[in-house]
Simulated scan of single mutants.
Amino acid sequence: MTNLIRTNFQAHPFHLVSPSPWPILTSASLLTITMSGVLTMHVFTFAQEFLCQAFFLVISSMSFWFRDVTGEATYLGNHTSAVQRGLNMGIGLFIVSEALFFLAIFWAYFHSGLAPAVEAGTQWPPSGIDSVNPFELPLLNTVILLSSGFVVTYAHHSLIKGYRRGALHALVFTVILALIFTALQALEYTVSSFTFSDSTYGSCFYFGTGFHGLHVMIGTAFIAVGLWRYLAYHFTEHHHLGLESSILYWHFVDIVWLILFISMYYWGS
């Protein structure tokens, strides 16, 4: 009886994660995406087919992984207050690493823009490049993304106060605004007069805005999962770490876009 009690109960509030196949499968799928993506750029045979399969594997493995984490948090009660503090710290450090990633992009952009090379015509944007007008689609996208930030904050406060209908409507509206932003960003790329290979300006512009667009899509999925979990009554006023993390990530996306708009669209034009 004593051994049984020691087996079923632990003397600490931390969650000892069970062995899982999803992290290694996700890592292998991401490596496959990288390799097949490079092969696709060099027009290798069947490279596109491998790339599509790799995307499917990433989505599948991460979906199963998130399913397990959701079960641990919602049904098994493994996410104690101590575990939540650790997860909050992990999300914070992840966002810091993302901020340093974008810092490298801005560093490269300003390094080239503040002292343009002779090959760029000693001017920024380089001669021959017609930059995007910041007061057209970029300004509209700025309004849309900032509005989504305000709306998702309203959803968070509504959840804390127990106003379920307001939180649900705000989360749905946030996802819709995020999808509109992504569609307008894709439209902007189709009408731009320069490409990724047009000097350092084109490389930095598309690298920065493209990766921000990728983060918007990830954040949209993040909030959409939170919306689905809220519909399934997984969250309470005091325990909604998954949704809170997605909202924090979305605010980071907003801040990065503001810097992108000011530096690459306005100053860079």
Rank of each mutant, 00 (worst) to 15 (best):
D130E: 14
F150K: 07
I247Y: 06
G37S: 14
E119F: 02
A104Q: 11
R85L: 00
M62Q: 04
R67K: 10
L100C: 10
V118A: 03
K161F: 06
Y163I: 06
A178C: 11
F94Y: 15
A47G: 02
R164C: 01
Y109I: 04
V143Q: 07
S158C: 12
W267P: 00
G37F: 01
P138H: 02
H238D: 12
S199F: 12
A221Y: 04
M35Q: 04
T80V: 03
P138S: 12
V58S: 11
T34N: 04
I259C: 13
V152T: 10
G202W: 12
G121N: 00
T220H: 04
S131M: 06
T190G: 03
L258Y: 05
G166Q: 10
F194L: 10
V175Y: 02
L260V: 07
N8P: 00
A232S: 14
H239K: 14
F14V: 01
L100S: 07
L177C: 14
I59Q: 05
G268T: 01
L76D: 09
V69E: 00
I95N: 03
V191L: 12
R165H: 12
V17Q: 15
P116S: 04
N88Q: 08
D68H: 14
C52E: 06
H156W: 12
A186M: 12
V175N: 10
P19M: 04
H238N: 13
Q53R: 11
Q48I: 11
I259R: 01
T40M: 07
L76C: 12
Y206E: 05
I255R: 03
V151G: 09
L168M: 10
L100E: 06
T122I: 05
T7S: 12
S131T: 06
F66M: 10
A28S: 09
L114F: 12
M41L: 12
V253D: 07
I95C: 01
F211T: 11
V225F: 07
L31A: 10
G202P: 01
Y163D: 08
M1V: 13
E244L: 11
A47K: 01
F66D: 04
G128A: 11
N3T: 13
F44S: 12
V151M: 06
P138D: 08
T153V: 09
E136D: 13
I144R: 09
S158N: 14
L114H: 05
L4Y: 05
V143A: 15
T153E: 13
V151D: 05
L177W: 06
T195A: 08
K161A: 14
T74E: 13
W267T: 09
L137H: 05
I259W: 09
T26D: 01
W22H: 06
F46W: 14
S269G: 15
H15F: 13
S147K: 01
F196A: 06
F14D: 03
M35H: 09
F101C: 08
A108R: 13
L30V: 15
L171H: 08
C52Q: 11
L114Y: 05
R164N: 04
A183K: 06
L139R: 13
N3I: 10
V152M: 08
S148R: 09
D68S: 15
T32V: 03
A167R: 02
S63R: 09
F94Q: 05
S63W: 09
R85M: 01
S60C: 11
V172F: 13
I59C: 13
Y230W: 02
F44E: 08
P13S: 07
Q123Y: 03
A99Q: 11
P13N: 04
V216R: 02
Y265E: 06
A47S: 15
M35V: 15
V175K: 07
F235H: 12
L168Y: 03
A73D: 04
